[in-house]
């Protein structure tokens, strides 16, 4: 299947060979250039060749990671591949209460939540009504490998759009605004992302933005507890193995919704946006998803937000973020 997909994408990207040559050429030039500039030059040069525009071009300069490709409904090789298969394979989380989870008390076993609603909207747009979706629950640190290894078509899993990630995958336009926040027991003396974290044990999910931020500045906290899923942090917090959790405010709110004795401490200390992650060269799919998002912002988004997220204590007047485009 991989081989078939590769072949079709080869056909679709007639210029791949040219790109390879360009890459090699650029690498040689880059090596000849003064050190230090080399890394940036490679990607800029890539974009400059006009072979892979948009997402890839942005990775090098990356001033505005949220800017994605303009929406379009045209089918490209990736979308055709999905249509041929007859189902959409999506990497999701089933541990994020009200984002992507399975309610054990409901008949059936469908996943549900804000992310899942979006997945259904995308699937119906591409495959028509009653579209089949295969959900693969993936741990935080497998989000990028799952896309790169063709295990999934896309990841809709509270995934923050960042410059680093843009070097490996492509993102849709932003569909949710969030930021990192600290979660701790109500009676804790931790007041937020500040010096009160000193000497405390702080939990984060492996390969998450929270982990990155804590590595940049941990305020003297012990950040050695890294878990496969952000929800595993709440388990550790309840068991007293850690003193606080750092995660996206949206997920922190979903954790607080499951345990009334913990609360969000201080405000968000970063500004981030969630996007749908896809394979880097799947330009047609990115444009297609962006088209879905244009429509979704108008109707589905608000309904879904009110159903899933407003009850967790998030701002009930929230609006979808305005899309930005790079081309």
């Amino acid at each position: 299947m991989l081989a078939r997909r590769l072949r079709s994408s080869l056909r679709g990207w007639g210029g791949v060979a040219a790109m390879a040559v360009a890459c090699a050429l650029t690498a040689v030039i880059a090596l000849l250039l003064p050190l230090g500039q080399a890394g940036v030059d490679v990607s800029t040069a890539l974009g400059g060749q006009g072979v892979a525009e948009g997402a890839q071009a942005k990775a090098g300069t990356c001033k505005n990671p949220e800017a994605s490709l303009r929406p379009s409904t045209e089918d490209g090789p990736t979308v055709e591949e999905i249509k041929k298969r007859g189902r959409l394979i999506v990497g999701v989380d089933q541990n994020s209460y009200r984002w992507g989870y399975r309610d054990p008390n409901k008949a059936g076993s469908d996943l549900e939540g804000f992310d899942i609603d979006l997945v259904h909207a995308i699937a119906e747009e591409i495959l028509g009504p009653d579209a089949k979706v295969q959900f693969l629950a993936i741990p935080t640190n497998q989000r990028i490998p799952a896309i790169k290894n063709d295990k999934v078509d896309m990841v809709v899993r509270t995934m923050t759009i960042t410059c680093t990630r843009l070097e490996e995958v492509a993102f849709s336009t932003a569909y949710f605004k969030t930021g990192q926040q600290v979660l701790a027991p109500q009676d804790s003396d931790i007041t937020g992302y500040n010096n009160t974290l000193k000497g405390k044990k702080v939990c984060s999910a492996a390969s998450s933005t929270a982990e990155e931020e804590l590595e940049k500045n941990s305020f003297g906290a012990d950040i050695s507890t890294r878990v496969p899923n952000q929800l595993d942090c709440l388990v550790r917090l309840q068991l007293g193995e850690v003193d606080a959790v750092v995660t996206d405010s949206a997920l922190a709110a979903s954790q607080a919704a499951q345990d009334p004795t913990v609360e969000l401490k201080g405000g968000t200390f970063t500004e981030e946006y969630y996007g749908v992650a896809m394979k880097k060269d799947a330009e047609d799919l990115v444009r297609r998803v962006n088209q879905v998002l244009v429509d979704y912002r108008k109707s589905g988004w608000q309904t879904s937000y009110e159903k899933w997220l407003a009850p967790t204590g998030l701002d009930d007047k929230a609006q979808p973020p305005t899309p930005e485009y790079s081309d």
């Binding site: 089933q94 541990n95 994020s96 209460y97 989870y101 399975r102 309610d103 054990p104 008390n105 409901k106 899923n229 929800l231 595993d232 709440l234 388990v235 309840q238 499951q258 345990d259």
Partner: peptide
């Protein structure tokens, strides 16, 4: 027991406890 209690309330936290 914690896994069960959370599962009964329909919270995904139950699954996390079960894995733990």
């Amino acid at each position: 027991e914690r896994a069960r209690a959370n599962n009964r309330q329909g919270l995904p936290l139950g699954g996390a406890y079960l894995r733990y």
